[in-house]
Design a protein around this nucleic acid. Structure first.
Ligand code: DGT
Ligand code: MG
Ligand code: MG
Ligand code: ZN
Length: 600
DNA sequence: GCCGTTTTCGGCCCGACTGTTTTCAGTCG
């Protein structure tokens, strides 16, 4: 199979019209999938403000999601002569529009809409409580286009005179506008975990609470989360909502009712709480775990079978036939239980109907860690400490993969220092029971694809992990050739963090992931799912493409401290989102099995 | 705008909370 998308959107949406997609100076390259998706979302936002058919609006959003889920660039699909209308949610019309954007970087239909409805209006939708209808009213009645216009209109007292606005809403708008009006940024999954567990633990002590689960994107283990969504089983929802609202870190209570409470913490993190009776807890979990599109697909399936699904249960007429557990709910819909990590409407419902869900990898399948640093390079702890910590985690092996000398800021090891480390590993293994430390390296891939260590040095290693840490700016072709050449080296068993992306900080370098995956498969070289919370590289979609192509994965913690070994589970989470099974992965095997596998 | 072991036309998930809405629209999950 194929490649990816560029990582999510680049930074903040600009106010500039999107009909013409800005490109780097002179670079006349095809629009990327993410650009096309962004164009469709912009189209949907503006059509919605124009009060277009909501299902037409939804069609653009659905197609945008499909594009985000695509592992292969549209330009390549087109070059291959593929029929884009085979993609879910893409028909004749949108297939043509995708091709148009891919070819020209523009969408005439969007430019036509923008001529009537300024693109900047869509930005106002990021202000809480401001939706398409109100934006339309502000535009039509007051000529508001930008946030600055809106602020002035509020100050003039013109907003309150529009029907359905009122003084309270005007005040709320002003507050939001003074606060910069920016919606809180998504945060990395790992950064939400402390808040999630703390909220969960305290809500468990709230009145009458039987169960608390953090659902939403957090439970699906999405790499970033927009908020925290908690589902609680309790007889009295108001009492639980009161308890949440009273937590000291709560800055604002956005909404509060008998079953739902929404608050914003001082940190800016939003927390949505949903409380149901215990006999609805399973249905509420299905609802609040999402994803939205997964849930909608389930509800459509229920309807097609003469049933109704909501957050209280599965109903035939007025009779509830399921609701207490998620398994019951899925079963009532003719489905096997679908693990949260798969609930993205990426084929899991069809698989669940046919009993073809994957046997997902779990943390307990992991037999060792193949990416670990020590204080010899940029790690913080000694070789002994790291190996003992790995043993304490129950691993049978741990690969010591310090950097090579080219990685100067990481204090990489030259041949002499590496040789000393290998001797130290031999001595450690001689006296250590229960785990074997593998002599390894995270060797730099030089600009031309050669490795930063001579073959004589590599020959002493049990395992060679290769990675790019420099020259991120090469062209797509050069970067791809560089990676393929590294994989051609017979001793290279794993490519670490194959795209180099850093969540929220840096897009991956330009590379033809399709070609990388195909070459990895042909060379028997594994691609890493780097479990570092800022990397998660490959991502879920890329890793799934790698699995589909028959390439192997390796999940490595990239630990720089003994605590960092614990990041392994974040990598496993992403592997699960990629539908990966134990046999797709190197480090679900014993060292003897692994050794046989990488010998080539 | 998409889509079809009920359909090629007529559907498209379903419910909670807010506010000035006096009978429900708008927004959000
Ligand atoms: N039925 C239905 N459920 C929805 C809808 N929107 C959201 N949900 C459910 C599924 C979501 O996973 C869950 C939480 O909503 P969120 O807006 O927090 O989304 P989610 O957590 O999936 O992603 P996030 O990281 O918060 O952006 O609520 C909807 O329009 N219809
Ligand atoms: Mg959420
Ligand atoms: Mg939410
Ligand atoms: Zn590393």
């Amino acid at each position: 199979m194929t490649l990816l998308n560029a990582p999510p959107a680049r930074g903040g949406d600009s106010l500039a019209p999107q009909g013409l997609i800005a490109r780097g100076a002179g670079a006349q390259m095809a629009a990327q999938n993410a650009d096309i998706a962004r164009t469709f979302r912009r189209m949907a936002d503006l059509l919605e403000i124009e009060d277009a058919n909501p299902f037409r609006v939804r069609a653009y959003r659905r197609a945008a999601e499909t594009l985000d889920d695509l592992a292969e660039p549209v330009a390549r699909l087109l070059a291959r002569g593929a029929d884009l209308s085979d993609l879910p949610g893409v028909g004749e019309d949108l297939a043509g529009k995708i091709a148009e954007i891919s070819r020209t970087g523009r969408l005439a239909a969007l430019e036509a809409v923008e001529a009537r409805t300024p693109s900047a209006l869509a930005q106002l939708g990021t202000i809480p409580g401001l939706g398409p209808r109100r934006i339309r009213a502000l535009h039509e009645r007051l000529g508001v286009v930008t946030a600055a216009d809106l602020k002035q209109a509020c100050l003039d007292g013109r907003v309150r005179r529009i029907p359905h606005f009122g003084r309270a809403f005007e005040t709320r708008l002003l507050t939001a506008l003074r606060g910069g009006a920016a919606a809180a940024a998504r945060r990395r999954l790992a950064e939400a975990e402390d808040d999630a567990h703390s909220l969960q633990a305290r809500l468990e002590r709230a009145p009458g609470v039987a169960r608390v689960v953090v659902a939403g994107s957090f439970r699906r283990r999405q790499e970033t989360v927009g908020d925290l969504d908690l589902v609680v089983a309790a007889p009295n929802g108001t009492a639980v909502g009161d308890a949440l609202a009273a937590f000291e870190e709560v800055a604002t209570v956005m909404a509060k009712g008998p079953t739902r409470t929404s608050v914003v913490l001082a940190s800016g993190l939003q927390v949505d709480l949903r409380v149901v009776q215990p006999d609805s807890f399973g249905a509420a979990l299905v609802y609040f775990t999402g994803s939205r599109s997964h849930t909608i697909a389930l509800r459509e399936r229920a309807k097609a079978r003469g049933l109704k699904l909501n957050e209280y249960g599965v109903f035939r007429g007025d009779t509830r036939i399921a609701g207490r557990t998620e398994e019951d709910v899925y079963e009532a819909l003719g489905l096997a239980f679908i693990p949260p990590e798969l609930c993205e409407d990426r084929g899991e419902i069809a698989a669940g109907a046919q009993g073809r869900l994957p046997r997902l990898i779990a943390l307990s399948d992991i037999r060792g860690d193949l990416h670990v640093h020590t204080d010899a390079s940029d790690g913080r702890e000694s070789l002994d400490a790291m190996v003992l910590a790995a043993r304490a985690r129950g691993y049978g092996y741990v690969a010591i993969t310090d950097h090579s000398a080219h990685a100067r800021v990481a204090h990489g090891l030259d041949v002499t220092r590496l040789s000393a480390q290998l001797d130290a590993i031999d001595r450690l293994n001689a006296r250590l029971q229960g785990i074997v430390a593998l002599k390894a390296s995270e060797v730099d891939i030089l600009k031309d694809g050669r490795l930063d260590l001579p073959d004589e040095a590599l020959a002493r290693l049990d395992l060679v992990v290769a990675a790019i840490h420099s020259d991120f700016g090469l062209s797509r072709g050069e970067q791809t050739r560089r990676l393929l050449r590294a994989m051609d080296h017979p001793r290279v068993s794993i490519i670490a963090h194959p795209t180099g992306r850093l969540l929220g900080a840096r897009e991956g370098y330009a590379v033809d992931m399709d070609a990388v995956i195909a070459h990895a498969r042909n060379r028997g070289c594994a691609l890493e799912i780097n479990a570092h919370p800022s990397r998660l590289d490959l991502n879920d979609i890329q890793a799934r493409a790698a699995k589909s192509a028959g390439a192997r994965l390796s999940i490595g913690s990239d630990a720089h401290t003994s605590l960092g070994l614990g990041h392994m589970r974040l990598g496993v989470d992403q592997a699960r989102r990629a539908w990966i099974e134990p046999q797709n992965t190197l480090n679900t095997r014993s060292w003897p099995e692994l050794k046989a596998l990488i010998a080539r």
